[in-house]
Amino acid sequence: LELTLRVGDKTWHFKDVDEEFVRHLEELLKRGAHEREIEEIIREWLR
């Protein structure tokens, strides 16, 4: 999967994204996660 995600003024483009990561992001967005929380999840995933 490829994913382009825009949060606030930042845009990330990922290739070979894990479906579990996408589901986790979807859940965060559904519950109205704040920009900082989403950025933290992305940084963790990139490690």
Rank of each mutant, 00 (worst) to 15 (best):
L1G: 15
L1V: 07
L1A: 09
E2C: 07
E2I: 10
E2S: 14
E2N: 15
E2F: 09
L3T: 04
L3Q: 02
L3F: 10
L3V: 11
L3M: 06
L3R: 05
T4E: 11
T4N: 06
L5T: 01
L5C: 04
L5D: 00
R6G: 04
R6N: 11
R6T: 15
R6Y: 04
V7W: 06
V7K: 01
V7R: 01
V7H: 02
V7A: 03
V7Y: 05
V7F: 05
G8E: 01
G8K: 02
G8L: 03
G8H: 02
G8Y: 02
G8Q: 02
G8D: 02
G8P: 00
D9W: 01
D9T: 07
K10H: 12
K10P: 00
K10D: 03
K10F: 10
T11S: 04
W12M: 02
W12I: 02
W12A: 00
W12T: 00
H13I: 10
H13Q: 05
H13R: 07
H13V: 13
H13D: 01
H13F: 11
H13P: 01
H13C: 04
F14V: 03
F14W: 01
K15A: 06
K15W: 06
K15C: 05
D16Q: 15
D16L: 15
D16R: 14
D16C: 09
D16I: 14
D16Y: 15
D16M: 15
V17R: 07
V17W: 03
V17K: 12
V17H: 08
D18I: 01
D18E: 09
D18Q: 06
D18H: 10
E19T: 12
E19R: 15
E19C: 08
E19Q: 14
E19Y: 15
E20A: 14
E20K: 15
E20S: 14
E20N: 14
E20F: 10
E20Q: 14
F21T: 03
F21I: 04
F21K: 04
F21R: 03
F21P: 00
F21G: 02
F21V: 03
F21Y: 02
V22A: 04
V22K: 04
V22G: 02
V22Q: 02
R23M: 09
R23I: 07
R23G: 06
R23E: 05
R23A: 08
H24T: 13
H24G: 11
H24W: 11
H24D: 07
H24L: 11
L25Y: 02
L25R: 00
L25D: 00
L25H: 00
L25A: 03
L25T: 02
L25C: 08
E26Q: 15
E26R: 15
E26N: 10
E26W: 13
E26Y: 15
E26K: 14
E26G: 11
E27L: 13
E27V: 11
E27Q: 13
E27T: 14
E27D: 13
E27I: 10
L28V: 08
L28Y: 05
L29S: 05
L29Y: 07
L29Q: 07
L29I: 15
L29V: 14
K30E: 08
K30Q: 11
K30C: 05
K30D: 07
K30H: 11
R31V: 08
R31W: 10
R31N: 13
R31K: 13
R31G: 12
G32L: 04
G32C: 06
G32A: 05
G32I: 04
A33S: 08
A33M: 11
A33V: 14
A33G: 07
A33L: 09
H34L: 10
H34T: 14
H34N: 14
H34E: 12
H34G: 13
H34P: 14
H34A: 13
E35T: 12
E35R: 06
E35H: 12
E35W: 14
R36N: 14
R36K: 13
R36E: 14
R36D: 14
E37T: 07
E37P: 02
E37R: 06
E37N: 05
E37H: 08
E37F: 08
I38F: 09
I38K: 01
I38H: 01
I38S: 01
I38C: 04
I38W: 03
E39P: 01
E39Q: 06
E39R: 04
E39V: 08
E39H: 06
E40H: 11
E40T: 10
E40A: 12
E40C: 08
E40R: 13
I41Q: 08
I41S: 08
I41T: 11
I41M: 12
I41H: 10
I42H: 06
I42E: 01
I42N: 01
I42Q: 01
R43C: 05
R43M: 14
E44S: 09
E44T: 07
E44V: 07
E44A: 12
E44R: 10
E44N: 11
E44I: 10
W45I: 03
W45T: 03
W45G: 02
W45H: 08
W45S: 03
L46N: 05
L46G: 04
L46V: 09
L46A: 07
L46H: 08
R47F: 12
